[in-house]
Computed example of a mutant assay.
Amino acid sequence: MTDRYAVVGNPIGHSKSPQIQMAFAAETGEDILYTALLFPVDGFEREARMFFEHGGGKGMNVTVPFKEEAFRFADSHTERASRAGAVNTLKLLDDGTIVGDNTDGAGLVADLHRYSVSMKNRRILILGAGGAVRGVLQPILSEQPAELVIANRTVSKAQALADDFADLGTLKGCGFDELEGTFDLIINGTSASLGGELPPLKDSLVNADTVTYDMMYGADLTVFNAWAVERGVARTIDGLGMLVGQAAEAFHVWRGKRPDVEPVLAMLRGDRRR
């Protein structure tokens, strides 16, 4: 019998996850059906329970605005999900319970490795202090950077995040105006660039060796990466590889196979050029 999986969110019509996961299934020879489901904003637990208990569901990806609700819904959590306080991947276990995982950070780190970007002993800046940033801190800190700085408009949020993860490495939370020195890697974890906005960043934060990474992606350069290009950074990377990488990690969680992301990335980037 074909195993059923889904991505759920509200809205959900824009999701590339069905295209990505069905391509992974074809590549690995796994017999699955993966669809996108629109859940009502006030009905996550009810709909998720129906999916797993009566809909034949084996696993689920969770996107905005349900990641925190998915965390509460799960019977148990992986360490990275516990650290993130949010879940983007649910898996039905053999004993009938559901484990919650978070594959976002693994997707980001895997994408940086694809571009041969080393994080070990590097000075890293992350912009933003929301859920997207919280979800990637543990995997980034496991790469052993020399220093990780979190900058946010609301300084207290950045400081709270730094405190929460202080046992894993050298962290600092601050406001944008407090940033000093040049960084090896700057990661934009805000959604501001999609709206054509940019945090107030000093030109001195980057140089010709800096790599910038925007978790957002689009047909053109994001505003953040366009800012970086104008200042002559070494490389700019968008978040499409993170999207595919977190999906590949979720597929591995569910099926025990790690698909090749390159054909899927080529397919998606081809779609974006049309």
Rank of each mutant, 00 (worst) to 15 (best):
S76M: 14
K16L: 14
G29A: 08
E197N: 13
G85H: 04
T182S: 12
P263G: 03
Y115E: 07
F24K: 08
R134H: 02
T28G: 12
R4T: 15
D164V: 06
V133H: 03
A129M: 01
N88C: 02
F71H: 13
L127E: 06
I126C: 07
E197R: 10
I12Y: 11
Y34F: 11
D104N: 09
F251R: 07
G189E: 01
E180H: 11
V8R: 07
P199W: 05
W227T: 13
D260F: 01
G85T: 06
I32V: 15
N152Q: 03
G270L: 02
V149F: 01
D209S: 13
A208E: 15
L38T: 15
G59A: 10
P65L: 00
P200K: 10
T236W: 02
A158G: 07
D101C: 08
W254D: 14
A74Y: 09
E30G: 07
A247I: 00
P145M: 03
K58W: 12
G175N: 02
G59H: 10
R114V: 00
G105L: 01
T28M: 08
V64H: 11
A248E: 05
D167M: 10
L137C: 08
L125S: 03
R258K: 14
Y34Q: 10
R83I: 05
P40A: 13
T154E: 12
K172L: 08
E79S: 15
M22D: 07
T78A: 15
G130I: 05
T170P: 12
N88H: 05
G256R: 11
R274M: 12
I98E: 13
K58T: 12
G9Q: 04
N152F: 00
M242A: 02
